[in-house]
Design a protein around this nucleic acid. Structure first.
Lengths: 225, 225
DNA sequence: CTTCAACCAGCAGAATTTTCATGGGGAAAT
DNA sequence: ATTTCCCCATGAAAATTCTGCTGGTTGAAG
């Protein structure tokens, strides 16, 4: 749960950083708009807290740069500018919350929690990924290295199971039990066949292979040979 | 974009309702905690605005009942109780935002927008669109490439749901649950039939197809093959 | 060094499932 | 009394799923 805090007053930023860390968050601090923007655009955070008045770029300019590339990450503006006009500017620029200094620290924590709560649970819910492979079980989409892959229902189910246990060897029986539910004939080679189909789509077009055979045991999803 | 407002002072609720409707939201009002809770639990809203001090059940009790069954719907608490203690109570109960009365109406609108933006990713009132296809759920009109299309109620509901989740594969069960509500026989092919009707009107007269079937999974709205 | 058995990759076509496209009956609206 | 809309049923077409088989590799025993 990494948070980016962009705030130029060392006292304030140290205070917030320490406080949030005590609450279990991981906090990175940037001391001006330029550095803040760079970090925000190059890293992925659960939440970004922006002071509005900053050296080089204002918080609103940083927000604009973020929203140009990413609509998802929640942004909380934190500033001494408390008029409704200022707030409207902030929300209009795509902020998710606006807190006026001075504030009570517990309220900041509560708002930070409210903004991060939703994301944390929905990310776990639908998106699985391993290396450059991503699978969204709600949208039923799979991409590798950014390219979308077209899988059939069975192939999708099989990959989903592998992706749920990366690095763990799954026996044919385990795979069959989960993907084929009950209707499974032990003497069949369906699993092999589908692993083969999957490899053709997931591994063959790429140089780094992810699906590996462990002779006598089953199949694994892992990085190297 | 339907919002539930639970507020017992008729003056305040009328004021908020009218204001939000001018901004393109659809607002339902409940005048006490009991009725508010009932509506919140039985219907699906994009956002719920709760006054804390209400007859029968307090806003916090209503919030608790909502969160017991649904973690998703954002809740905004709106109240005269402005101490940090009160706010912490609200956030602790699962609220997403907390606004203290008296407030400037534009700020409420901005916060309502911020909370609903992410949900349907439809910021402007009731108009949904994807590529050159547009659907206005308030006006019940659909156009493609500027041309108006004439859809029946079921067709409209189905397209609206697809349009609300572009790029996501929706299973027949999901579609049926939303469009056909409860009266749905699992062995029926109604969904297929209506997707077919929709295609005849939405896709057939145009070269770029938008509705695609994913065999064994469901249907999606997306641009390419 | 040879043989054998176990195991796995890959293919091709058959079997099955899923989807499309229509016709028609009945309900609802006009 | 039409017209429109909703839904079921059906068969054809398309796509997927599965079976059976061939051939290759590996590793251990003879």
């Amino acid at each position: 749960m990494k948070i980016l805090l962009v705030e130029d007053e060392p006292k304030v930023s140290a205070f917030i950083k320490r406080g949030l860390e005590e609450e279990g968050f991981e906090v990175e601090v940037a001391y001006d708009g330029r550095f803040g923007r760079q970090l925000a655009l190059s890293h992925s955070y659960e939440l970004i807290i922006l002071d509005v008045i900053l050296p080089y770029f204002s918080g609103l300019e940083v927000l604009e740069a973020i929203r140009a590339q990413d609509q998802q990450t929640p942004v909380l503006l934190l500033t001494a500018l408390g008029t409704t006009q200022d707030k409207l500017h902030g929300f209009g620029g795509g902020a998710d919350d606006y807190l006026v200094k001075p504030f009570d620290f517990p309220e900041l924590v509560a708002r930070v929690r409210a903004l991060t709560r939703r994301r944390g649970q929905q990310a776990k819910g639908s998106a699985l990924s391993f290396e450059d492979l991503t699978l969204d079980s709600a949208a039923k989409t799979v991409t590798r290295a950014g390219q979308p892959l077209k899988l059939t229902a069975r192939e999708f189910g099989l990959l989903e199971l592998l992706l749920r246990h990366p690095g763990r060897v799954l026996s044919r029986a385990e795979l069959a039990a989960d993907v084929w539910e009950d209707s499974f004939d032990a003497g069949s080679n369906v699993v092999d066949v589908y692993v083969n189909y999957l490899r053709n789509k997931v591994d063959k077009p790429f140089s780094r292979k992810l699906i590996h055979t462990v002779v006598g045991m089953g199949y694994v999803l892992r990085a190297q040979e």
